[in-house]
Nucleic acid binder design. Structure first.
Lengths: 343, 343
DNA sequence: CTGAAAGCGCTAACAA
DNA sequence: TTGTTAGCGCTTTCAG
């Protein structure tokens, strides 16, 4: 059980030198096909698995990817499902490679920078996936001035490797669905402008209105922090001043606050107001009414990010393409499409 | 930024040999206090951080803990919050140590054993926290026959290091609360018997009834898988055959199914039936009605488990105490205590 | 109590 | 294309 076959054993079995065995197993191009085959077979026969520590020490790269959760994104992870799906996606990309996935979090905003600095200097990570640190560029500054390969989850404002949804599309899809329901006055409850996706979704919202010949009304654009209570307060305040038939809410937790606020204002969702939100989470599924939302495909976000990061680490950087994950609409009750279902 | 001070540098700075510096930093007892101090100061001055790979290679133990999520516990993690709180607790225990935390999952039941075997032989883990693998002892067999230190989250049926709630207490607290509401006929919607906590909570339920002079009625003990749809079906079927005023539900996701089933049977929670569940999750918070539940203190489960595991790895095993995390009742609407609140 | 030397398993640089 | 040699940075003998 205690696998301790070394590359020496493999080399001996294959009748080659250790370094050759190493090169063969690591896909170096100068090894003959014949030799590679011998080595690979020997390795399989002996159930060889490279010692991660030794590999790390001699090659200088740790067989370990980090997922960094910055404090500013904390709410997302306390929310329902996003985190799990993301991790699942990352995990399945990592599975089968020699890498493992480790979690790195920081509770406080100021702690995030320190943590990142520490991580960059700790040599314990081969690469890092970082949940997008909003417009605060300090975190990315730190990463860029280190030699730790990284990929951003979410669109950063600078030139860096990242994976994100097409959030313009997200905004467009959500808004168009509301338009299809016949709503002409559609509010947008958005998040703090430090998130780049807020801007994108607003653009999508705007574009949907325009291409349907509807007016864009500044007074229907509301912002709140991404927690239920903030959304509740904002909607309670704004909604009584304006007429509207639909509302596009930027996040699932906010949607809950919005629905409660509307209810307290005497407006029922979906009968009086149609609502579409973002993130196909447990919360949107189980809330009453269940919430129609644009799926963020967190699994793929994570999966692609990890894949791309490993390419980067292994020097297969394909000209830094910005991969984009599209969003789909999950239709439930809150938009007014259909009654509650039960299994 | 690229921290590459080695222990040699530290030794030089402190005016001692590398091996002495190593011993000093690792708390070996034979180093004089004076020397240790010099070394520690030198290390701090130079911002020394041991190279994880080197440490791993030479000492044989990886600076990396694994959290293993077995397929049979998957539902728990797709549920709301348990996972996050657990990880947070583990993470904070690991923070400040030289260990990192990596996630290990398996999607399929059969895959779990393979994965674990592979993990045990991979030398990539210094220790493992495993979410309790129910009565299926195969997984623990694998671990025990390996030399990988591990701790179980949840009570296993064998003698092994573990951390768990006192689930008898959990059952007792929940049931007693229902009794305080004046209910005399209390159903228990439980989970599959392969989970040891099911048995424990049943015992707690029973004990609460007994100590209050209430009858135990076998027909009020129901079981379903830990998913919403299964709970729905079970309650729908069982609840129409029996009279009862309260129900204790073993899991938050089941509670949702139960409430829907009761509703479809014309019974409103909490007006017609008082309900108490387990796990202080987002779901219990946000569901309507919000669900009174026994807190499982997942944070502490994780935190203690990691702490204890590290002790084990470092050979400070304190006679294998079974640590137990107590549960508290979080009172919300479903039990009938109080009306909905809003911030 | 401290130091010198060897070696963990791997890969990198060089020779052949 | 392959093999030889020398470390990577740490801990671990084993002398002193």
């Amino acid at each position: 059980m205690n696998n301790s076959t070394t590359i020496q054993d493999v080399a001996k079995e294959a009748g080659v030198a250790a370094s050759t065995a190493s090169d063969a197993l690591n896909g170096k191009s100068h090894v003959s096909e014949e030799t590679r085959l011998k080595v690979v077979q020997a390795a399989e026969k002996l159930d060889y698995r490279p010692h991660p520590g030794a590999k790390h020490l001699s090659s200088g790269v740790a067989q370990n990817l980090g997922l960094f959760v910055s404090a500013t994104r904390k709410h997302v992870f306390s929310s329902t499902g996003f985190f799990n799906k993301l991790i699942k996606g990352i995990h399945e990309a990592v599975e089968g490679t020699d890498y493992s996935l480790s979690l790195q979090m920081s509770e406080t905003e100021s702690g995030a920078a320190d943590k990142l600095r520490s991580l960059a200097g700790s040599r314990s990570l081969g690469g890092l996936i970082i949940t997008h640190p909003t417009r605060n560029s300090e975190l990315l500054d730190i990463l860029e001035s280190s030699d730790l390969p990284f990929i951003v989850l979410g669109r950063p404002e600078r030139d860096a490797l990242y994976v994100d949804n097409d959030n313009v599309e997200v905004g467009k899809v959500a808004t168009e669905h509301l338009i299809e329901h016949g709503h002409e006055k559609i509010a947008f409850l958005s998040g703090p402008s430090r998130f780049t996706y807020v801007e994108d979704r607003l653009n999508g919202y705007r574009r949907a209105l325009e291409s349907n010949g509807l007016n864009f009304d500044e007074d229907l654009i509301w912002n709140s922090e991404l927690v239920e209570s903030a959304a509740y307060k904002t909607v309670k305040k704004k909604a009584q001043k304006k007429e509207f038939g639909g509302i596009f809410v930027a996040g699932d937790v906010q949607a809950v606050g919005a629905i409660h606020a509307l209810k307290d204002l005497g407006k029922e969702v979906p009968n009086d107001v149609g609502l579409v939100s973002v993130c196909n989470s447990q919360l949107t599924m189980h809330f009453h009414p269940s919430i129609t939302a644009v799926d963020l495909h967190e699994y793929w976000l994570g999966n692609w990010a990890a894949d791309r990061l490993i390419q980067e680490i292994e020097g297969e950087g394909k000209g830094r393409p910005k991969v984009v994950v599209p969003g789909d609409l999950i239709v439930r009750e809150s938009c007014g499409c259909r009654p509650e279902e039960r299994d």
